[in-house]
């Protein structure tokens, strides 16, 4: 099935997504890699609302045009590095959609079921294509501390995809079927 959905996803919307479905997403995404996961889990006050956005495993290439940040290239980064944080992260920030590549482990799989969240795969390396779908950059956090790739960037995206549902909220993983 192919779906075109707006963020934040409602529980019913997450539940109907099954492994192998294709999704195009509209709304706000925030990028977070290893360092950003760590900082956000440690932080008491976060000045944006992650629960309203999709979590994008991405360390983008950005360019400042006059005073405005623009995306040059922004494909996904390897998700398995975030496995050590992700279950706590989904719980704390009420995440409904994750975008990454390469898949995640058992802890995340359980958290996707428990907190009703879905893990989708975007084509690794398709940075130019992804950048085309970003309409606006709505903020950046921890840029000085973490540098460009590790900072948290807020992207307003339109019809971002095709995303492949790789791990759904019912305990299924596309990667399990392949490695068996």
């Amino acid at each position: 099935m192919e779906y075109h959905l707006n963020l934040p996803l409602k529980n019913e919307e997450v539940k109907k997504l099954k492994v192998g479905d294709i999704v195009y997403i509209t709304g706000n995404l925030f990028t977070a890699r290893d360092e950003a996961h760590y900082i956000m889990l440690e932080s008491k006050n976060i000045s944006f609302d992650p629960s309203q956005m999709g979590l994008y495993h991405c360390g983008p290439l950005m360019k400042k045009d006059k005073s405005k940040w623009k995306v040059v290239s922004a494909g996904p980064t390897t998700s398995s590095r975030m496995e050590i944080f992700e279950d706590k992260f989904i719980e704390k920030f009420k995440i409904s959609l994750i975008i990454g590549k390469g898949g995640m482990g058992e802890r995340t799989k359980k958290a996707l079921q428990k907190y009703i969240c879905v893990y989708t795969s975007y084509t690794g390396g398709a940075g130019a294509l992804a950048a085309e779908k970003v309409e606006d950059v709505n903020g950046v956090y921890w840029l000085d501390e973490l540098g460009m790739p590790e900072a948290v960037w807020i992207f307003k995206v339109k019809e971002f995809g095709p995303l492949v549902v790789a791990m759904d909220s019912h305990g299924n993983s596309i990667y399990d079927n392949i490695t068996k």
């Binding site: 360390g59 290439l61 084509t123 398709a126 130019a128």
Partner: peptide, 25 residues
């Protein structure tokens, strides 16, 4: 096929717009 399709479209777009094909340069 959807993955290879996205890769080929991405290669095309990167060349046309002279931007890095992948954010990990």
């Amino acid at each position: 096929k959807t993955q290879i399709d996205a890769i080929l479209k991405n290669i095309d777009l990167a060349k046309k717009t002279k931007r890095p094909m992948c954010q990990d340069t």
